[in-house]
């Protein structure tokens, strides 16, 4: 890879200052598990590399019963995976992490890095969107909070401005009678999916047979994760049986926007979305009932 000027700022303010100074010519490196590949393949040649990996103030998981979960952007996948709080309160997140890439990648790669790299087949983003996550974007100009569902623009493109740093992920507290799951269709273990679905369902507090609302987020079948809106609307307030699940699965498969590649045709990806929506809705509902 080509060389660069290297900075390792010690705090968020210094990072923002550097970003502001070198807008457009600088790249942030956190775990680098995606970035270093781009550098090695000479797909990017930043003049400046800002290494934030060692900034401890961005490495935390905080839980509050009412506020929910606040995760520092430099938390590694492995930390999230093994956090007792996350395993207890947001199991679908921890569960998704156990099958994300490999052990080594999870040990060094960060959540913030994954989100900002914006790989269309990320496992993390659809899962967080299903949990209605928000991200905090920080710059010298201040802070703004954005729903993760509005964070992605296109393949490898987000709404992050050149002088901004993603510093925190916030997941609102979830109601008791809820359940969620992420499943993907991949060819081998460690792969991202050729299709992935994250589903989070909240059951009616009086009648567990009724689904109050559901979030169904489709991954790897568009430039970024897509909410399966028609399917979500179909299930909202309804009793969830096989017939409604099948219809929701069919809608999802119609509404996604997969691109054919050497691993799978567009039709196969749509078919897998159908299968995954079927599976995840069933599972999310049953987890909600068991909660």
């Amino acid at each position: 890879m080509r060389t660069f000027k290297y900075f390792s700022p010690k705090d968020v303010k210094s990072v923002c200052t550097l970003l502001s100074e070198h807008q457009g010519e600088a790249k942030i490196i956190a775990g680098g598990q995606s970035l270093v590949i781009l550098l090695r393949q000479k797909l990017i040649h930043p003049t400046y590399l800002i290494d934030i990996k060692a900034i401890e103030e961005l490495n935390y998981i905080q839980y509050d019963e009412k506020e929910g979960l606040r995760i520092g952007a430099l938390t590694t996948h492995r930390t999230l995976e093994t956090s007792p709080i996350v395993m207890r309160e947001f199991f679908m997140l921890s569960e998704m992490e156990t099958r994300l890439a490999s052990f080594q990648v999870r040990n060094w790669g960060t959540l913030g890095g994954n989100l900002c790299h914006a790989d269309f087949a990320s496992d993390l983003s659809p899962t967080l969107i299903a949990l209605d996550a928000e991200v905090k974007l920080t710059s010298l100009r201040g802070e703004r909070k954005v729903k993760l569902s509005a964070f992605f623009k296109d393949h490898y493109e987000t709404i992050l401005r050149a002088d901004e740093l993603l510093t925190e992920i916030v997941i609102p507290a979830i109601p008791k009678n809820s359940g969620g799951v992420y499943r993907k269709a991949n060819l081998i273990e460690t792969d991202q999916g050729i299709a992935g679905v994250a589903t989070f369902a909240v059951l009616d507090s009086d009648n567990k047979e009724i689904c109050e609302y559901i979030r169904i987020v489709l991954g790897a079948v568009g430039a970024f994760p897509l909410k399966s809106k028609r399917a979500e609307e179909l299930i909202r307030g309804q009793k969830v049986d096989d017939a409604i699940i099948e219809e929701a699965a069919q809608m999802s498969s119609e509404d996604c926007r997969p691109i054919a590649d050497i691993h799978a045709s567009e039709e196969y990806k749509r078919e897998m979305i159908k299968v995954l929506v079927r599976k995840t809705v069933k599972k999310a509902i049953s987890r909600g009932k068991a909660a």
Binding site: L187, I188, E189, T190, D191, I262, H263
Partner: peptide, 26 residues
């Protein structure tokens, strides 16, 4: 799992990312 995908003499998957090798699982 494995297949070298050739298109007009070009290998489309010359890496372990896109050429799938069995690992220890499954």
């Amino acid at each position: 799992l494995e297949e070298l995908v050739w298109e007009n003499g070009r290998t489309l998957n010359p890496s372990f990312v896109d050429y799938k090798l069995p690992n220890a699982v499954g």
